[in-house]
């Protein structure tokens, strides 16, 4: 148990620092690196919560594919220049953002500790009552109330059993993915197809294009000039 708390503490700090880095870094590349730190920390937290499969997928898909794609686009477009964060684009926008953030944190974090109207109030997070029939409930101490459920709390198990759970994690995900969630799985096919079509459509160069030379042919100064002249499209 102690290990898990330490892992959580370290990863939480890394994740928060990374997230702040995303928002406050002037250079988009630094933002992307901050995002990598956060995503990696979250992957470790997944493993810490016995979601081993997701931990791996998180690293492969997010840090391995998505952030690399973002970095690739940053480099492709050459927009890795510092952004001026000192001037405020809209008056009061920054304060508004801070207020929104604080409200969100306060509001969301608050609800985990405030008592609801429901019965069996404990004020503890573990009192999220699984009221769906068949899923064991827990009492105020987080002890499962149903006899069968005593062992179902993963963390209460010895290490060797936990490893077995890790292997079962994938099996369980696979089974549920192709039974209960098979419809959702089918829809992702449509979703990914749309993403591909969209990318192709966006990458296409129309026949009669506005007077804009290929990026490779010109230096950026030239492009800037041309793009200002090309703005008359409106």
């Amino acid at each position: 148990m102690g290990v898990q708390i330490v892992v959580f503490a370290v990863c939480a700090i890394v994740a928060l620092l990374g997230a702040l880095g995303v928002v406050f870094a002037r250079n988009p590349v630094h933002s992307a690196l901050g995002l990598v730190a956060t995503l990696f920390a979250i992957a470790v937290l997944f493993v810490n919560q016995n979601a081993q499969f997701l931990g791996v997928v998180q690293v492969i898909v997010y840090t391995g594919a998505i952030v690399v794609l973002i970095l690739f686009v940053i480099m492709l477009l050459g927009v890795d220049t510092d952004e001026d964060l000192d001037t405020e684009p809209l008056l009061g926008q920054r304060w508004a953002a801070v207020i929104v953030a604080l409200l969100l944190i306060g509001g969301i974090a608050g609800i985990f500790f405030v008592e609801g109207r429901g019965e069996a109030v404990t004020g503890q997070v573990a009192a999220l009552a699984p009221i769906v029939p068949g899923i064991p409930s827990t009492d105020a101490q987080g002890n499962p109330t149903t006899a069968a459920g005593v062992d179902t709390f993963v963390r209460a198990l010895p290490a060797e059993q936990q490893q077995a759970i890790g292997e079962q994690n994938i099996t369980q995900i696979g089974e549920h993915l192709f039974t209960d969630y098979v419809f959702a799985f089918m829809i992702t096919a449509a979703l990914l197809t749309i993403a591909v079509i969209g990318a192709v459509l966006m990458a296409r160069r129309p026949k009669r294009y506005e007077p804009m030379p290929e990026l490779e042919d010109t230096s950026y100064e030239d492009v800037d000039e041309l793009s200002t002249t090309g703005e008359v499209t409106g």
Binding site: F112, V114, A127, L128
Partner: peptide, 9 residues
């Protein structure tokens, strides 16, 4: 059937 304990959530 019942009110969830954390219905604020």
């Amino acid at each position: 059937e019942s009110i969830p304990r954390h219905d604020l959530l």
